[in-house]
C-alpha cells in the first residue's frame, strides 16, 4: 500500500483553553475526493487550518507528504481554499493570481497564462483585470477557488467551497473538482451533505473536535443489509410502508422525513428490489421523485446509530 499523503496523530488544538480538536488521528491516501463533515463548531476549519499550517497544533504530529505543514517543500504540492479569505482589493485579480503563481515557481509569462487558465476554469476569465471590490461574494469565492487550482497541486483542501454559490456555479465547482480529481486529491469540508455525497466517495466525520474512528464510504452497504432511499410525491405514508414491508426480502421500512422512506432489505434474497419497489408504486399509482441506492449521507452519518 502506498504512503498516506496526510497523517495526523493525536492532534489537539485549543483556543484560550477550549479544546477545538481532541486527539484527532487519521490518514488520507491519494485518490478520490474525501469529505470532512460535522456540525457547526465541530472543528472542521480548525483541522483544515492545521493541515495548511495556518495554525500550529497544541499537541500531536501532522505530516503532509512527509513534511510538517508550512514546510517550504510543500510549496506547489498543497493548496487550499481557506474559509473567508479574501484577496487584496488594491491589486487586480490577475496581478494577484500571477504573483501567487510566480511564488510557486512560474515565470512571469507562464504565471499570467496560469492565472488566465484557473480563472477560465471558474468561468471568470473576464475578471482578470478586475479588482475584488467589483466582484460579488460568489465571484470572489470562485476566484479564491481559482487560486487553489494554480499549478495543479497534488493535494487541494477546500473549506466550504460551495457555500454562498448559486446552483449553476455550485455545479461548475463540482465539475471542476471531478475533472481535477484525476490529478489531485481533494479534501472538502462542507455542510452540504447532498453536495458532498455527489463528489466524495469517503467521508470523515468530526464532532465536538473528535474524529469518528471510521471513514464512511458513501456507497458502501452497512453489513449484510442494503438500503434504498425513496423520495415520494405526496402519498399515504402508512399504506406505503405497509405495502413495501410485504415485499420479499424487505427487513424494515422507516419514514425519517416527510415523503422520504428508507427501505432496508437483504440483497441476497431480493437482488432486484428496486424493480419490485417501482412495480409496487406503479400498481398503486403513487408518484415518486427519486429512488436512490443506499442511505443519504445525512442519514448515514447522523441517524444510523
Amino acid at each position: 500500500m502506498s504512503e498516506p499523503i496526510i497523517q495526523c496523530r493525536d492532534v489537539s488544538h485549543s483556543y484560550s483553553g477550549k479544546l477545538a480538536l481532541k486527539q484527532v488521528s487519521f490518514e488520507i491516501f491519494a485518490g478520490e475526493p474525501i469529505g470532512l463533515v460535522g456540525p457547526n463548531g465541530a472543528g472542521k476549519t480548525t483541522l483544515l487550518s492545521v493541515l495548511c499550517g495556518f495554525l500550529k497544533p497544541s499537541a500531536g504530529i501532522v505530516s503532509i507528504f512527509g513534511y510538517k505543514p508550512g514546510d517550504s517543500n510543500l510549496c506547489g504540492k498543497i493548496s487550499a481554499l481557506p474559509q473567508d479569505a479574501r484577496f487584496d482589493p488594491v491589486f487586480t485579480i490577475g496581478e494577484q493570481l500571477a504573483f501567487l503563481a510566480c511564488l510557486q515557481g512560474f515565470d512571469v509569462e507562464q504565471a499570467w497564462q496560469e492565472a488566465g487558465r484557473v480563472l477560465d476554469a471558474v468561468a471568470l476569465k473576464e475578471s482578470l483585470h478586475s479588482i475584488l471590490d467589483t466582484l460579488s461574494h460568489g465571484m470572489a469565492k470562485r476566484v479564491a477557488i481559482a487560486q487553489a487550482l494554480i499549478g495543479s497541486p497534488e493535494l487541494i483542501l477546500l473549506d466550504e467551497p460551495t457555500a454562498g454559490l448559486d446552483p449553476v456555479n455550485t455545479r461548475n465547482i463540482r465539475s471542476i473538482i471531478m475533472e481535477q480529481a484525476k490529478h489531485s486529491t481533494f479534501v472538502i469540508s462542507s455542510h452540504d451533505l447532498a453536495e458532498l455525497g455527489r463528489v466524495c466517495q469517503k467521508v470523515l466525520l468530526l464532532e465536538n473536535g473528535v474524529m469518528s474512528p471510521m471513514q464512511h464510504n458513501v456507497a458502501e452497504a452497512d453489513g449484510n443489509t442494503g438500503f434504498f432511499t425513496l423520495q415520494m410525491e405526496t402519498c399515504p405514508a402508512d399504506k406505503l410502508i405497509k405495502e413495501l414491508n410485504q415485499l420479499n426480502g424487505v427487513i424494515k421500512v422507516s419514514n425519517p422525513q416527510k415523503n422520504e422512506f428508507l427501505v432496508e432489505y437483504l440483497p441476497e434474497q431480493a437482488p432486484q428490489i428496486d424493480i419490485e419497489i417501482l412495480t409496487c408504486l406503479a400498481k398503486h399509482h403513487w408518484s415518486y421523485r427519486q429512488l436512490i441506492r443506499g442511505k443519504s449521507l445525512e442519514e448515514k452519518l447522523f441517524f444510523s446509530h
Binding site: S79, A80, P82, A85, R86, F87, D88
Partner: peptide, 18 residues
C-alpha cells in the same frame, strides 16, 4: 493581510520566514 485572509494564500506558497 492577516485579518483579510490574504496572508493564507501567500502562506501556502511561502514559508513564514519568507
Amino acid at each position: 493581510d492577516r485579518v483579510r485572509g490574504t496572508l493564507r494564500f501567500l502562506a501556502l506558497r511561502v514559508s513564514r520566514d519568507g
